[in-house]
Design a protein around this nucleic acid. Structure first.
Lengths: 337, 337
DNA sequence: TTGAAAGCGCTAACAG
DNA sequence: CTGTTAGCGCTTTCAA
């Protein structure tokens, strides 16, 4: 009797109407006699009815969930410790919750995992995908596209394809860092880049170097990092060997910038007095670092929200052409440069 | 014709068998003629069939997803920036992915949001809930319990109730910090507690004070913090006023410990030479901080994984009595104390 | 405005 | 070992 949860049928029986009618009032369809509506509403209350989302999804072909997939370089689940992904999540969740859609978290760090993601979406377990993919060789965007899964990327795809994405003008960001360092009167400027097989890193680096060249610095000592604190520290060490008289450093993210500051300090160099340091992102470490980091702000939360926005829009109106949204970085001047 | 995705029916037609048979091979049920299996498998390949998870869920009453709900004090979505939640997520995801179950992220930071969470689960949109709830007054655990939703908490519930949880022996952690500071010869020891309406904070604090008393220190200057860097900094300031000759500090998490170190430094005090600082958690800031933090390690990832484990187990075998798992903290000695 | 009826795609008895 | 037959709970034409 009282086994499963109450169903439409139960409510209908109590209200003395048909399932269809109950369904109509539940879904707020017009054309239902106000009196009946009242009756039905009471019956719902009385039975403690809750619509079964799964059954509904089966017929509507909409689940009210989207996949938030982190397609990493295989970094595993410690990506969640990276402040960047935390911010992406925050932005996405903030936007989606207002629309009552829920993100399901997926890691696509192996070929097997990627296949699972595609399956999951093809199976209609989620309405679309929000994909944070860093590596340009990542096959996932293309696979998703091919599978006909509505998707939006954070960062443009490795190779051009008709898929929506949000991105930052990374070159402009690199330029800002260069301009600031030069304007501060620095002469021996070096840089810690991100992994150069990542488009964002390439762009930040290119923008930085271009601007430096324009300022009369044709060559900029560069050490490649991996966006982690350790890699930033070791990159700084190398830079210090190549150019011991460095007086300005641009690091491609805050984590590395923070680490660089520590290394400089350990070498008896003061920041910003002896060496000015500019970071990128403006995430938590920028504020936690001492001195607080001057950095190029990437509005991650806004970008993530926009990504979700684009996805929901394309869900509303399928068959639209892909969209993109490029955000502008902003220099945040604090104490380190 | 080629409108929707291929269904069981389609495969059955191609293979020349019944839907049931196809279903059997898809689900790996025995009792299917190997030859037929082959035929069916080919038909699946040929049609590009993917089972529809939603339809399956409707009949099996299992979705293969669980809700990962962060029931915060209303901190909003910036919780995702907190390294603690990142670690929880990492631990959960790591465990679940091996079982092909996916977490859907939910924030329960308002009463409305909490209701949504309960609805979501009652509607069978997820099989159970993993609940990270810090505030003891949080009504969500009780609501979930009442709604009959299989749930496991991270941290014991505010008031006793028959619900599973994982937790840390926070008192032991506090004790370790005290023992270490005293053993290091510190005499003027103070502490920055977490928010005292949080059980974990209370326990860490109680454990710390008990041990201190046992070591002959009946009173420990205390400043309450909020687990954030800012609150840690301001707590340290206050402590410095109350006891300028402080030579040992226990902060209830790493974020606050890191901030405390900065404040001490700003006051011309060296860490650990002048003041020894012990943190709690052993999360990213502990390593990013200079000097690196001596801290009480909480095995968050393991605990989160266990939480997921307990949930899946209770899903397998419903009607079991609630379980708990208490983890032991561990002192990690680094440079700050 | 309301109800009857036909599925959505799948699983799971139950026969055969 | 395989096929037939009911549904799971809901939405949605189509008539009334």
């Amino acid at each position: 009797m009282s086994k499963g949860a109450p169903t439409l049928e139960d409510v209908a029986r109590v209200a003395g109407v048909s399932r269809a009618t109950v369904s109509r009032v539940v879904n707020g369809t017009r054309n239902v006699d106000p009196e009946l509506q009242e009756t039905v509403r009471n019956a719902i209350e009385q039975t403690g009815y809750t619509p079964n989302r799964v059954a509904r999804s089966l017929v509507t072909r909409r689940t009210g969930t989207v996949a938030l997939v982190i397609s990493g370089a295989g970094g595993g689940s410690d990506v969640f410790t990276d402040p960047f992904f935390g911010r992406v999540t925050a932005g996405v969740v903030d936007f989606l919750r207002l629309r009552s859609v829920h993100p399901v978290l997926m890691l696509a760090d192996s070929d097997h995992a990627r296949t699972e993601v595609v399956e999951f979406l093809r199976q209609g377990s989620a309405d679309g995908a929000l994909l944070v993919s860093t590596h340009p060789a990542d096959p996932l965007p293309a696979r998703l596209l091919q599978a006909g899964v509505p998707s939006v990327l954070y960062a443009r795809p490795g190779r051009p394809m008709p898929i929506s994405y949000v991105d930052l003008d990374h070159r402009a960001g690199g330029r800002m860092a260069a301009d600031h360092l030069v304007a501060a009167g620095r002469y021996n400027i070096a840089t810690i880049s991100g992994p150069l097989d990542v488009l964002a890193s390439q762009d930040r680096h290119a923008g930085f170097r271009d601007a430096m060249a324009r300022h009369g610095f044709p060559y900029v000592p560069t050490a490649e990092g991996g966006f982690t604190a350790e890699s930033g520290a070791s990159a700084m060490q190398r830079l210090l060997v190549e150019c011991p008289d460095v007086d300005g450093v641009f690091a491609a993210n805050d984590l590395m910038a923070q680490a660089a500051v520590e290394v400089l300090r350990a070498h008896g160099l003061r920041v910003p007095d002896d060496v000015a340091v500019v970071g990128f992102d403006d995430s938590a470490p920028a504020l936690a670092s001492r001195p607080q980091l001057t950095t190029v702000r990437q509005p991650v939360e806004d970008m993530a929200a926009k990504m979700a926005d684009l996805l929901l829009a394309s869900l509303e109106e399928p068959g639209q052409r892909p969209r993109s949204a490029i955000f502008e970085p902003e220099l945040v001047v604090r104490a380190s440069a």
